[in-house]
Design a protein around this nucleic acid. Structure first.
Lengths: 336, 336
DNA sequence: GTGAAAGCGCTAACAT
DNA sequence: ATGTTAGCGCTTTCAC
């Protein structure tokens, strides 16, 4: 592997000039530039970015903490992050945390040893170990999709979860549903709270109360959606519709509804959230909320970049718009 | 951010001793060690790994090229890679290539500038630009899941695709199917060729010929699976079973079979490949081939590590076992 | 426009 | 067991 000195030697200039010719071409004369580039070619030279980064004190990498990389919604967010990162000359380090705080601390900790210039947390936890909080205070951190619990020090890029859940409620009520079950995510998650409050608020506006028996907690997995549906449908007074807080759980719920000999949507309507691609191919296709996943990622990366560069943020909270996608998993309430 | 000199000053020893106390504790006396650790604590010191890596000439990062990060099968492979990487002190750089060769070249190129110590290619292409081939020759590269076309210079970790496709064929023939359609992936892909040859070989053994009209090419997406099924089912003599080369296409195919008023499996059996989690929740659940995805990833990372460290490989080709998972999307042939 | 040289933070060879 | 120092490859002042 040839280095900058080798190129300097070959082109008969100093290393400084080579450095300039490559990073700031108009700083050197056309003739030298040409000679340098020729030497670069001949030597098969590639700058050692490890050295460059070390020298500049930056890694030009961002650490992305993702609760579950197998969730297609997060995949799309990551796509958005990556695209934006590439545009900005940054690389993406992947940290699949499985929602585990020790994993989060491990990966986020890499920003403390200069392996990443910033962190994008897609989960809802403050990702650093408490004992590292002092050091971590200076690490650029952006929170996307979720919102870090009890902490508004960090910019967040998220959906109008409250509004989206309201929209779902309105959609179901418009179809005549009055007893609606909800399969949430983990109860401590801020988005779960937002969606739950939006949902019950919309119900209240129409004089309906959210029966606690109609709220079960899932874990954003298909299995938990299936179990949740089983619980809801085994109640004495079963719901005619189920609002699932993500598409995976909705897929599990639809599965269970059918297993219990009921039809979707004739007997039970089911809604999802996220609009992952699979939601179009279930039977029936899911009514769901579309999240602009790639944009969430892009905004998160762009925001992080501003922080890294010490530039001012227009706002510490970016809310992206949702969209209700009506498909065939919801229909008129046939009960009574 | 305090550095090693600061710690040296605080503990009254030299930087070398601090370095040793941290990297090789038993090289310094217990008393000094203690003093150093105390100083580290007080100073809130974290080693600058950018500097350490630069100094050692290694990035301790691997670049993973993935054709489509939204494909849950690849997600699981990445999980396996990441786990193994973490165990070995490596970080994972993500390169979502979308199957695009310019993306592959961009991301793989990061290994040429010392930003990654090696590359894991999950796609089937030689990832470097031809003009970089000379430089790239020294970059550790492992191919997983797919096999790099026309090039056996690189170790590969893959499934027995030929055998798995045979197994699918045998399963369908056992159920009485004699006219079977196939929805493949891109025709240049080696795994597609392997599976196709295994499939037709098994057919031949039972005196059946694979009708070219029964082979359509998909792109490993649900939409292409849907289209493929439409094509196959619109033929004059339609198949009673369809072998899809991944689960997404099978999901699309099932969707289309139903849309055409046919039943799965009563009228048409459908099989998938990969055993992604969604395959359990389709209606009906998919008969498919289980791939040990995480293990594929783990082996790939371990193999790459051996190459990086210049250690000998036991074999340049690791074949992992498959398993046929029988679910309800396949059933006895009812035709004639 | 170009060169000389310091310095980024760490490791490791060498000296003691 | 510990200190001194060169050096990793690059960027960036500071002179000229």
């Amino acid at each position: 592997m040839s280095n900058i000195r080798e190129v300097a030697r070959r082109s008969g200039v100093s290393v400084a000039t080579v450095s300039r010719a490559l990073k700031d071409p108009q700083m050197v004369s056309p003739r030298t530039r040409e000679r340098v580039l020729k030497a670069v070619e001949e030597a098969g030279y590639r700058p050692n970015l490890l050295a460059r980064n070390f020298s500049s004190g930056k890694s030009y990498a961002v650490m992305v903490l993702v609760p579950n990389i197998a969730n297609p919604f997060f995949s799309r967010v990551i796509r958005g992050i990556e695209k934006a990162a590439q545009d900005q000359g940054y690389s993406v380090l992947l940290g699949d945390t499985k929602g585990d705080s020790s994993n989060e601390q491990f990966y986020a900790g890499m920003a403390l040893t200069n392996q990443a210039d910033g962190v994008i947390q897609l989960g809802s936890r403050y990702p650093f170990a408490e004992k590292d909080a002092n050091l971590a205070a200076s690490v650029p951190l952006v929170n996307a999709c979720e919102r870090i619990v009890e902490d508004d020090r960090y910019p967040v890029v998220e959906l109008d979860n409250h509004g989206a859940a309201q929209e779902v409620a309105r959609h179901l009520m418009k179809m005549g549903h009055r007893r609606i079950g909800v399969i949430t995510g983990p109860s401590q998650s801020p988005i779960v709270r937002d969606r739950l409050s939006g949902f019950s608020e919309a119900l209240k506006k129409r004089g309906l109360e959210l029966d606690p028996e109609m709220v079960v907690h899932g874990e954003f997995t298909m299995t938990s959606g299936q179990k949740g549906a089983e619980t809801l449908l085994s109640t004495h007074h079963r719901p005619t519709a189920i609002f699932c807080m993500n598409d995976e759980m909705a897929i599990g719920a639809v599965h269970q509804v059918k297993r219990m000999g009921l039809r979707v949507p004739e007997d039970v309507s089911v809604t999802g959230f996220d609009n992952i691609e699979f939601s179009q191919f279930t039977d029936p296709p899911l009514t769901t909320i579309n999240q602009p996943a790639e944009e969430l990622g892009r905004y998160a990366m762009e925001t992080l970049r501003l922080i890294i560069d010490g530039k001012p943020l227009k706002s510490s909270r970016t809310i992206l718009p949702f969209e209700l996608v009506e498909r065939e998993s919801t229909g008129p309430c046939s009960y009574k």
